[in-house]
């Protein structure tokens, strides 16, 4: 086909006009077309606003972490890395990390076990749709309201769940949030109540994409349903679970609303996870410099987790497996 020939044709006869092209996603014409500026204009307001409300605070955070921040008209005093050095000898800071890890792994263990079991059951149930609708209601509750609701349920005088624990002979009459040994379990239960449905939803999305031919082949080979689950379904839903785990893990860094409503970090600092400690340092003791240093370290870890998450997001093999329709 000569160039002359093509130019004579009406555009409707070209393959492009019908959407037949090797790559639909990224047509090469865009790069050549002068309308690139169009995209830049469309993008500019959002990027500018986002930069103003995130980069500027981030620089502020670094500034604060390098100063002794004085409230009032006095100038802040440059202290270099002193705020960071102090963290190294701060037992509560390390305890905060340990509690955050303990809390997150306990929440995730329960949420995954219950959430995946539920998803497997629902996937084979006639009532999947109505049940899922009912199950996901706790996710809509504002975390601070969820915290206050459970604060009431756990209350030593009026709480019905406290009464239930007592009647079952658990806890020896003490309120679950009242003792350092049990308070952490108390806040874990609330997280499990609120966020198990998310794991169920993600797992269900994964189970819908388990290739039927693999299941059938395995069945023909005579494997039991349980064997089937562990050797066919589970490997297929694994990438979904991985994303669920990372997301929940990061949310535990992000949100402390429920914990603030339930215990505020007590008793005896037994629920003072690092973000809660950071809240106290900044907004109770107003040590903004030290708060900045803690916040910065928390941010660094989150960004590392985020990098891992995005790596999984963009893994081509995973993308293909997860978007394949059956």
């Amino acid at each position: 086909m000569s160039g002359e020939n093509v130019s004579k044709r009406h555009p409707i006869f070209t393959a492009d006009a019908w959407g037949f092209r090797a790559s639909e996603q990224m047509p090469e014409t865009i790069n050549r077309s002068p309308s690139k500026l169009f995209y830049v204009y469309l993008m500019a307001p959002a990027i500018a606003l986002l930069a103003a409300i995130t980069i500027y605070p981030f620089l502020w955070l670094i500034y604060m972490s390098l100063h002794k921040v004085k409230l009032g008209p006095v100038d802040d005093k440059w202290v270099g890395l002193k705020n960071y050095a102090k963290l190294l000898s701060d037992a509560k800071y390390f305890e905060g990390w340990v509690l955050l890890g303990k809390y997150s792994s306990m929440c995730l263990t329960f949420e995954i076990i219950i959430g995946v079991t539920l998803a497997v059951i629902l996937n084979n149930s006639r009532f999947e749709k109505p049940l899922v609708t009912l199950f996901l209601m706790p996710m809509m509750v504002s975390p601070v309201v969820a915290g206050l609701l459970w604060f009431y349920l756990y209350n030593g005088t009026f709480g019905w769940y406290h009464w239930l624990f007592e009647s079952l002979g658990l806890l020896g009459g003490a309120s679950i949030l009242g003792r350092p040994e049990t308070a952490l379990y108390g806040i874990v239960i609330v997280d499990v109540w609120q966020w198990t449905p998310l794991i169920t939803l993600i797992t269900l999305a994964g189970l819908k994409r388990v290739p039927q031919d693999q299941l059938e082949a395995s069945m023909v080979d005579g494997s039991s349903p349980i064997r089937n689950f562990f050797s066919v379904s589970l490997p297929n839903i694994f990438p979904f679970l991985l994303i669920a785990i990372l997301l929940r893990f990061m949310d535990n860094f992000r949100f402390i609303d429920a914990i603030l409503a339930l215990t505020g970090g007590g008793p005896a600092d037994s629920t003072k996870l690092l973000p809660v400690y950071l809240f106290d340092v900044s907004f109770k003791f107003f040590k903004l410099g030290r708060g900045g240093a803690i916040a910065f370290s928390l941010l660094v870890v989150t960004i590392i987790l985020g990098l891992i998450l995005v790596r999984i997001f963009e893994d081509p093999a995973r993308k293909q497996a997860m978007s394949a329709q059956d």
């Binding site: 990027i47 986002l50 409300i53 995130t54 500027y56 605070p57 981030f58 502020w60 955070l61 604060m64 990061m250 860094f253 992000r254 949100f255 402390i256 973000p275 950071l278 809240f279 900044s282 903004l288 708060g291 900045g292 803690i294 916040a295 910065f296 928390l298 941010l299 989150t302 960004i303 987790l305 985020g306 990098l307 998450l309 995005v310």
Partner: peptide, 24 residues
Amino acid sequence: DLLFWIISTRMAPMVAVTVPLYAI
């Protein structure tokens, strides 16, 4: 990189963001 920056602002712990945001 631009995309990662965008998503990382969403992942940042709320308390860590609150302190400088309040000051500003």
